[in-house]
């Protein structure tokens, strides 16, 4: 039996790994919950990437007209809908349809991703509040 005072080398290694895992876990959780994308002073743009290339940029705000269009690539097609300042993939020919299940996003840090069709929609934000402060 190992002495309580002298920790075995293995146990120390396990402890270090355990601490490392906890740190990664806690940091990740902090990043997930400290999502400041709800800030109203930010202007948002949806960027649609197909196969690594930017194919469309749509500003997302209350003035954005509703629209539906289809992005085609050699991997497949996705139907994208913009409605009331939010964007979603509403139809796709991929197998798992995770992109459709992700629903409408307007202020999310997470992009909509369709891996089978190599499609990614990210929300880019720009801080307008700084400018507003200067131009009063």
């Amino acid at each position: 039996m190992s002495d309580n005072l002298t920790m075995k080398k293995e146990e120390r290694f396990a402890l270090i790994l355990g601490i490392l895992l906890s740190i990664i876990l806690i940091t990740s959780l902090i990043i997930i919950f400290k999502d400041n994308f709800n800030d109203k002073s930010l202007s948002r743009t949806a960027c649609i990437y197909s196969d690594g290339k930017l194919v469309k940029e749509i500003p997302l705000n209350s003035q954005t007209p509703d629209m539906t269009f289809t992005i085609e690539s050699k991997y497949g097609s996705n139907t994208i809908t913009v409605k009331e300042g939010a964007i979603a993939v509403t139809d796709a020919d991929c197998a798992n349809k995770i992109c459709v299940k992700e629903g409408f996003i307007s202020n999310s840090r997470l992009p909509i991703t369709c891996l089978p069709n190599r499609l990614i929609i990210t929300i880019k934000t720009k801080d307008d509040s700084a400018l507003d402060a200067v131009t009063y």
Binding site: T27, S28, L29, I31, I32, Y49, D51, G52, R109, L110, P111, T113, L115, R118, I120, T122
Partner: peptide, 13 residues
């Protein structure tokens, strides 16, 4: 596969 940096926002999740 996607050649898009956007996928890294999934990293913490």
């Amino acid at each position: 596969l996607t050649k898009s940096k956007g996928v890294f926002s999934y990293l913490p999740y």
